[in-house]
Amino acid sequence: MKNKKRKALSAVEYIWLLIVVIAVWQIASNLGLLNPLTLPSPAMILNTFISLIKKGTLQKNLLISSRRVLTGYAIAAASAIVLGILMGLSTHFKRMTDLIIQILKPIPPISWIPLVILWFGIGEKGKVFLIFIGCFFTILVNVVDGIRRIDVKLIELSNSMVIPKLKYVFKVVIPYAAPNIFTGLRVGLGQSWMCVVAAELVASSTGLGYMIMYARQFGQTDVVIVGMLMIGIIGKVMDSILMLIEKRVIRWK
C-alpha cells in the first residue's frame, strides 16, 4: 500500500514539470500572447502530429532516421569498444594512437560535411559516416578511461594466479570497465541523434532532419517542432532501453 503510494508520488514528481510547461504554453497561446507562426500552441502541434501520422510521413521519416542513426552508432560502438580495449590494455598502443585521436576528436561533425560529400557522394553511406564520427570518440574515450582505471590489486591477483591473458581481459578487465563502457554507449547514443539533422543536410529527401529543414522553408513551424520533439522522444526511449540493458548486465552493483 505504502509502496504503491510512493511509486505514484515518484511518477508525479517525474512528469509534473512537463505538464506545467505544456499547460502554461497552451494558456499563453489561448490568450494570444504567442504568435502561432513563430510558436504554435501544443494543441496545434498535436493536430499536426496526428495528421502527419495519418499521412504516414512521420513514421516513414522516423524509420529512415532511426536506421541511419542505429547503423552509424552500431559501427561506432563496435569499433570504439575494440579499439578502446586495445588502447586501454597497451600503454604503447595508446601512446601511438592518442595524438591523432585527440586532434580528430574536437572537430565538429558538421564540418565533415564537405569531405563527406566528396568521399561518399550523396547516398546513405555519407550520412551513416557523419553519425559514426559524431559518437565514435565519446564512446572510445569512455572505454579507454574505464579500462585504464582497473584496480592494480586485481591485476596483481590475476598475475599471482597466472591467469591467461584472454581470460584476464574477458573476466576481469571488461567487467571492471563495464560501467564506464555503458556511460560511453549512452552518451554516444545521444550524440548520434544530435548528428542526425546535420547528416540529413547532405542532399537528403527523407528523414526527420530533412523533414525539419524542408518545413522551415515553407514556414511550417508546427512541423518543425513535431520533428524536433520526435528526435527528443526517440532519443529518450532508446536511452531508457540502454539503461535497462545496463541494469541487467551490471547486476552485481
Partner: peptide, 30 residues
C-alpha cells in the same frame, strides 16, 4: 615470477565483484 604451484591469500579479499562465490573460487582453475 608467479607460478601456479604457489598460492597467495592477500591481506584484502580482492574478490571479483561481478562473479558469485562459486565463480570467484573457481576463477584460478584452468
Amino acid at each position: 615470477k608467479p607460478d601456479k604451484t604457489r598460492g597467495m591469500v592477500f591481506q584484502e579479499a580482492r574478490l571479483l565483484d561481478w562473479m558469485n562465490v562459486s565463480n570467484n573460487v573457481g576463477f584460478p582453475l584452468q
